[in-house]
Design a protein around this nucleic acid. Structure first.
Length: 216
DNA sequence: AGCACGATGCTCT
DNA sequence: GAGCATCGTGCTT
């Protein structure tokens, strides 16, 4: 077991730029205790939202009832309601009064797969509202501390994702956000190593992989 | 595989 | 009143 495994990521992890945290959360383990059952998954997609200047970030509106947790200390959950039916989970980053966060967009289920699948009616966890639905995360979790286990929601260190498996691209769903914010490559994805690809790579396994690929 | 659309209610102007 | 950090369905390539 690698160092720090099983313990929540510390406050210092989140007390950095949302861009760094978004990149480093790839491969980390999102853990949720729901009705006594441990649910978890590897984070495979994130987006960074950088503060009041970032016109794609909710903080563009300044301090409001909704954005209050964004202005709070790093390492807390920012959970908000959108489209009249969906809850989205973020991790607050950076110092107090610096309203930045990282959106958790997708996980690969690891523990409690059947329970999560049941909550999702057998559909996937490849979307921010799919993650919260699978893990039973809602408005009650807004503002909770992710650096301890008391609230039943935290993030543990996982297996680091190598640079060649990280893709970046524009954030999703910002159709009415002005440039340059709309197109900033602040979305991060870890490509999943499938069994098929692992087999295909093994025989002459140099691979090398090259640079991180860019999405369109 | 991709696009169009409706659901549904909170938040900010 | 407009817009929304989305999702599932249904229909077209």
């Amino acid at each position: 077991m690698s160092a720090g495994r099983g313990k929540p990521l510390p406050r210092a992890f989140y007390d950095r730029s949302a861009l760094i945290v978004a990149r480093e959360l790839l491969g980390a383990r999102l853990v949720r205790m729901a009705e006594g059952i441990r649910l978890s998954g590897t984070i495979i997609e994130t987006e960074a939202y950088l503060g009041e200047e970032d016109l794609g970030c909710h903080a563009k509106a300044g301090r409001t009832a909704r954005t209050r947790t964004l202005y709070g200390p790093p390492g807390h959950a920012y959970v908000y309601f959108t489209y009249g039916m969906h809850w989205l989970l973020n991790a607050v980053t950076g110092a107090i009064d610096s309203p930045a966060a990282v959106l958790i967009r997708a996980i690969q289920p690891v523990e409690g797969i059947d329970e999560m699948s049941a909550r999702r009616a057998g559909r996937g966890t490849d979307g921010p509202a799919k993650v919260t639905q699978a893990m039973q995360i809602g408005g009650a979790e807004n503002g909770i501390d992710l650096t301890g286990k008391d609230a039943g929601l935290w993030i543990e260190p996982g297996v680091p994702v190598h640079a060649r498996r990280v893709k970046t691209g524009p954030r999703i769903g910002l159709d009415n956000v002005p440039e340059p914010w709309r197109s900033m490559p602040w979305r991060f994805l870890a490509s999943v190593e499938t069994a098929r690809r692992a087999r295909a790579r093994r025989p002459a396994s140099k691979d090398g992989g090259g640079q991180p690929r860019r999405m369109q």
